[in-house]
Design a protein around this nucleic acid. Sequence first.
DNA 1: CTGTTAGCGCTTTCAC
DNA 2: GTGAAAGCGCTAACAG
Lengths: 342, 342
Amino acid sequence: MTQSNRRAGRAATLTDVARIAGVSIATASKAINGRDEVAPSTRKRVIDAAEQLSFTPNALARSLTEGRSGTVGLLTSDLEGRFVLPVLMGAEDAFGAGAINVFLCDARGDSIREQHHLKALLNRRVDGIIVVGRSTDPRPSLGQDLPVPVVYAYAPSDDPRDASLVPDNRAGGRLAVEHLISCGRRRIAHISGDPTFAAARDREIGVREGMADADLELVGDVLFSNWSEHWGRDATALLLNQHPDVDGIVCGSDQIARGVIETLRDLGRSVPEDVAVVSHDNWETLATNSRPELSSVDANLQQLGRAAATRIFEAIDGVEAPGGVEHLPVRLVIRGSTIARR
Amino acid sequence: MTQSNRRAGRAATLTDVARIAGVSIATASKAINGRDEVAPSTRKRVIDAAEQLSFTPNALARSLTEGRSGTVGLLTSDLEGRFVLPVLMGAEDAFGAGAINVFLCDARGDSIREQHHLKALLNRRVDGIIVVGRSTDPRPSLGQDLPVPVVYAYAPSDDPRDASLVPDNRAGGRLAVEHLISCGRRRIAHISGDPTFAAARDREIGVREGMADADLELVGDVLFSNWSEHWGRDATALLLNQHPDVDGIVCGSDQIARGVIETLRDLGRSVPEDVAVVSHDNWETLATNSRPELSSVDANLQQLGRAAATRIFEAIDGVEAPGGVEHLPVRLVIRGSTIARR
DNA sequence: CTGTTAGCGCTTTCAC
DNA sequence: GTGAAAGCGCTAACAG
């Protein structure tokens, strides 16, 4: 690139290139886009001219004629949320590999703002929209009358006609408890987070199923409150007081698990020898800096984002989206809190 | 919105609106864009027609004629990084308030991919670009010959002609240590992270300046290794062994601080009574779940993002960007690790 | 006030 | 193979 493309304040156009190459703009277009109805020698002249002018094809103009913009909107309700980011990354990644660019819009949990962003995206003629919610609780649908395909990721739409992708928290709960059982634990308790979250309830269901399948029952009631480390500490104290013989704990989140582990240690229980602990989220920073490191269920969020992107891709290509909520597989990452290092 | 805008698979155009309203397309355009050279009654007819067709102005076409796209590119090298997100949010927020939309591009630390994304952004005729780096170490410039303004946020450009915005880590170090001193601490140590990071070195400089100003000297050498909780633990053990009389510790990050606090407690020191601890980053989840909660220096990242957006705004409006690295103020958030609750 | 007429930069028939 | 011409949807003069 030289300063040539700043000359006169505007970028070189196909017309400029055509003129320099001594061909028509139609030919220039074909040459640059690699159509084969162009003589090799001509193509070279055009390419050279384009290079010389550091020509940048105007995607806006191209989109106008082609009817597709090659962009999609990522509509999130809460960028801050720790779960949104991986989904975003996955989607951005999947699209970035192709020729699609992503508009990022954060509604900050405000539906007015969301509506505003939606309109802007539609104005910009995005080819599709991915809505990334902040929790796995259903969120209001954007509606059925949108001119572009929409996929809901992480938070499903409350309208079953929409296509939604969410992590399978129930399977996650089951995975967690089955792991404890396979580690020989029998007196298992469940300390979870905020029960108003679908994630908490779904995981509980999975945990109970896993226990039932092994003909076991949870030690005490499931302890619900919030997703904090503090609660993990308090709940553990409570639990050990009532059920000192507990030998396994499924935690609702890594944060809770951190509190749980710390308190177990404070109260003289060693992890995982006396009590094995498994949690959810697999938040690396928390999980790997814990002592011992946390075994945790990973929701494969990045993959979920990629899946959402794939759905949009397909929908753009005319494949009708199935609709309904699809639960994507999660995976267990085993670390020292359930199996001692040797 | 009805299904009318899906009819024939394409959205209504200004021409459609004009026809229904019984006016020319020029008049329709003026009416919709709120120009005042239109009779109120005419305007109403047009607006009604637009509504009826659920007309969405095609931003692509508009951009094409206007010469500005109303978009900016957010080029990050590492979405995963905990520091780029707040910057992103701030920028998105600042733009979102206006009529500008943001293209998100994650190069994943790969310069080839970055070049690729840059080209795509230029093709899409973004009006400006914000480059968000993953650390405060200088990064390669995108070059001077770009047709749009560029601002570097968090990671400065290595070319002084570029405009860069970074948090003032040196001031942060000073802030941290001055706080400890004002809490009556005199035997202060510094446990930091990876010394290859500019952030670590800048903060150290600030810490030393603050100490020197108070005619004090750091207890022992600054301990460098990495930014982990594990290192915080190890370093603390080391420190207490060599300097059991330490009464204040500046930590390079909240993660380190978590390890430090835990080990202090394990070794029988109470925080903040025996040893006051202050750290950097103010990562809420870590800082507020710690026991006691962490006093920490916040880099005001979101504000930094907003500032970057403002710069781009100005540059788009023709205000020449100053160039050079600007250090943005940081702030200290005081919690229980330096001042005991009463 | 309203309509006509040029484009914006590019792709795409469809002749030559 | 190549080029002329007709748009894509909209805005901006400039006439009426």
